[in-house]
């Protein structure tokens, strides 16, 4: 699984489906949950998106603001899940 591909697809999902603003200049390190952009329901949507798109299960315990706050953290979590045995 290519990191750049995961990043691009996840970025598109966040901008189009969660923020409903495709033109928003989303930075990789922008705090999305603690910054009030995404709520808990949006985090659940990302988890289900990761299951459908990348076949990666992210447990609820990993979906905390300190572990899944930025696009970068989400990408790394998906990559880690994909490479797990």
């Amino acid at each position: 699984m290519l990191e750049a591909d995961v990043r691009e697809r996840l970025r598109r999902f966040i901008l189009q489906d969660l923020m409903r603003d495709p033109q928003y200049p989303l930075a990789d390190d922008e705090p999305l949950v603690t910054g009030g952009v995404l709520d808990s329901f949006a985090v659940a949507q990302i988890a289900v998106f990761a299951e459908h798109e990348f076949h990666v299960y992210i447990p609820d315990s990993d979906m905390t603001p300190d572990r899944m706050d930025t696009l970068e953290q989400m990408v790394q979590r998906i990559i880690r899940g994909a490479s797990a045995p």
């Binding site: 808990s40 329901f41 949507q45 289900v48 609820d60």
Partner: peptide
């Protein structure tokens, strides 16, 4: 709030979205 989010809200949200991703 975080207890309820982790053990009630997130499991219910995920279950609903798995059945139909339309939010």
């Amino acid at each position: 709030s975080s207890w309820l989010r982790d053990y009630v809200y997130l499991p219910l949200s995920r279950a609903a979205l798995r059945r139909d991703p339309n939010p």
